[in-house]
Design a protein around this nucleic acid. Structure first.
Lengths: 215, 215
DNA sequence: TTCACGCTGTGAATTCTTTAACAACTCCTA
DNA sequence: TAGGAGTTGTTAAAGAATTCACAGCGTGAA
């Protein structure tokens, strides 16, 4: 069995695969067992050529005149995106945003489970929050190691960010979804994705102005 | 007065400018009145060449041997990113996430103010939430028009997303920050930025696995 | 069984983004 | 006042990502 394709798939393509999978899950319930690249493309706001190339990259083939088998494609994407034994996530920082993220993420994907939350404030620790146990941040290293947590969602105050990140990295975390609007330093083997809302808003504000008149 | 440079600046560059401005604001309080491109680059996790090119694109010049004047650069970026009379934002969907976003965004930038929230649920409307007045979604079109709101943050349930978007667009919204994990359809002149957390998590999960061993 | 249609798979072309490289210049030192 | 160190501004090259375009094929219709 060949498993994952040898060469790394680009970040952009992985993002689209995630999107395709979600769209395909909906299609699977509804219509014929096949989709054309142009159908999937229009659902994903992309081009047919892009869809075909993405699927080519993961070694998936369709049939001319029938398109791609939906269930087979979902299975193939699962094989790429999911780890067989699943991956566990910790959320750090149980403030307003942290709690909302807990509720948002919990239970979305069986192979990607939030298993613990951490906070410095003793008033928040030692109980369930949105069904997830919340621990003291002092217990974090042991917890991450023993439960083999590889992903972290960071939603702590700015000042605390870098030191929390250092702890996470030292505990063996492999990737961080960062909601703190500060660039965090990590060693090269740790991946970071910044979701910076103010940056997105400022970008939208700019293009909103460019587009139409000058309000 | 020439105002904005004629040619559009790329999305990537705008994002970095937003980041630079934030970093510069910190620098301004601390040290000398100048920065070198390599200093700013290292704070932004970028390369000096990238910084120089970005600043070139917005027509900003530094001095050899002293670098860029921090305050002047902030002013120049303000000129690009900010609208002189400010832009107003509406938040739609006051659930867990919506409330957290209100708290997060409120008061961050004076030229980018959240001025109203909307929800379908009458229990939530008619009062302040995190200091922002919350209205019925039925009043949204009038409100958006009369208060000249051009940006929207979308945090409604999936099923409601497209119909809310249609209303927003019809009311004159120019750009939407979309937290709903569904591709929304808008006319070409409306800009959308999708902040899709599950997609980001799945991407990180993939690269976390690629990097090290195969857990 | 044959034909025509419309799709896939993919090399080539294009476009967009980043990095390299270096001449020109400014400041500091002596 | 002249020289050296180190930075900017910018052109050219490299590298990624996307789109084009078309050969080849499978299906359904005749």
């Amino acid at each position: 069995m060949k498993g994952q394709p040898a060469r790394a798939i680009s970040e952009r393509t992985i993002e689209r695969l995630s999107l395709y999978r979600r769209l395909l899950a909906k299609l699977a319930r509804q219509q014929s067992p096949h989709v054309y690249s142009h159908t999937l493309a229009s659902l994903a706001h992309g081009t047919p050529a892009q869809v075909r190339r993405d699927l080519m990259l993961i070694g998936f083939s369709g049939s001319p005149a029938r398109g791609y088998n939906i269930q087979d494609l979902i299975d193939r994407i699962d094989l790429i995106l999911d780890s067989p034994d699943g991956q566990r996530i910790a959320l750090v920082g149980v403030g307003n945003l942290g709690r909302a993220l807990l509720a948002y993420i919990a239970g979305q994907r069986s192979k990607l489970a939030i298993v613990a939350a951490f906070d410095r404030d003793p008033a928040k620790t030692g109980r369930l929050i949105n069904g997830i146990p919340c621990h003291s941040i002092l217990d974090m290293p042991d917890f991450i190691r023993s439960r083999k947590i590889t992903l972290a969602v960071l939603a702590v105050p700015q000042d605390a960010a870098q030191s929390v990140v250092d702890t996470l990295v030292a505990s063996g975390i492999r990737a961080i979804l960062n909601f703190v609007p500060v660039p965090i330093r990590v060693p090269r083997h740790v991946h970071v994705d910044d979701l910076d809302m103010m940056m997105s808003l400022e970008k939208l504000a700019y293009f909103a102005r460019q587009a139409g008149n000058g309000d």
